[in-house]
């Protein structure tokens, strides 16, 4: 019990004094996961929308693949990204293994199917006739797609939350492709794992609290936007 109390006390101290190491780790976490989420939004929303709006053979199979991808285990992603980026691997010449770029790549791979799956569902649940209505207002195909995406903005906000929430809390892939290098590729989750294994519970708790706060703040902001838009 003492251990926990002592840990929390020290953790609060680390937070309040803005410990440089804690600060660095936090900023990198936000940078890596934020970038990865942005990339996944670009890819996920566009492909998700295209798939939702088009009819092709094997669509069901493709959709089931995306849905499976929503639960992609981060360690598996980490494993494959590592293999691809390995010195002798197919993408080894980039030399980006154990860099934040590799972490962004891995996290984007984890978040993209999540965003894509939610986008797909969001666009598909819009009334079918809405497309006809938009076209009959004189829209070009591109204008129609843009209007549909705007119509689905609330579920798409959920996609942002789910995507970001998924990668900021992910540890396996970041550890494997980033290497948890101090001051370079160490993020909140990998640092927490390391400090815990070393018995530095105070540090680990501090990092854990930040992680929780971060996830909470981001979701709070997005929820605010979402709820403001709800019907009265």
């Amino acid at each position: 019990m003492d251990l926990i109390l002592e840990g929390i006390k020290k953790a609060l101290w680390l937070l309040l004094t803005l410990d440089p190491e804690v600060r660095g780790v936090t900023l990198l976490s936000i940078k890596v996961s934020g970038t990865a989420t942005l990339i996944s939004l670009l890819i996920g929303i566009s492909i998700g929308t295209i798939v939702a709006l088009s009819e092709f053979r094997g669509k069901r199979f493709f959709v089931s693949l995306i849905n499976t991808g929503m639960g992609l285990p981060p360690v598996v992603v980490g494993l494959f990204v590592t293999i691809f980026l390995w010195r002798n691997g197919p993408l080894g010449f980039f030399g980006i293994l154990y860099t934040p770029i590799a972490m962004i790549l891995a996290q984007a791979i984890i978040a993209t199917p999540i965003v894509m799956g939610i986008t797909l569902a969001a666009i598909q649940q819009l009334p079918k006739r809405l497309q006809l209505q938009i076209l009959s207002l004189g829209a070009t195909r591109l204008q129609m797609v843009w209007i549909l995406i705007k119509e689905a903005k609330l579920p798409l906000l959920a996609a942002v939350m789910a995507g970001f929430g998924g990668v900021i809390s992910e540890v396996g892939a970041s550890m494997m492709v980033g290497g948890n290098i101090k001051g370079y590729s160490r993020v909140l989750t990998t640092a927490t794992v390391m400090e815990t294994s070393r018995g530095n519970f105070d540090m680990a708790i501090a990092l854990g609290i930040i992680l929780l706060l971060l996830a909470y703040i981001i979701n709070l902001i997005l929820t605010q936007i979402q709820q403001r838009e709800r019907p009265r």
Binding site: P127, R129, L130, L132, Q133, L135, S136, L137, G138, A139, T140, R141, I147, K150, E151, K153, L154, E229
Partner: peptide, 21 residues
């Protein structure tokens, strides 16, 4: 010619209002 140019001469109202959010 692009079909949307023809559609821009028309307007359609459906049974459901199909309004935007």
């Amino acid at each position: 010619c692009p079909v949307f140019e023809y559609r821009r001469k028309l307007a359609m109202v459906f049974q459901e209002p199909l309004l935007f959010d």
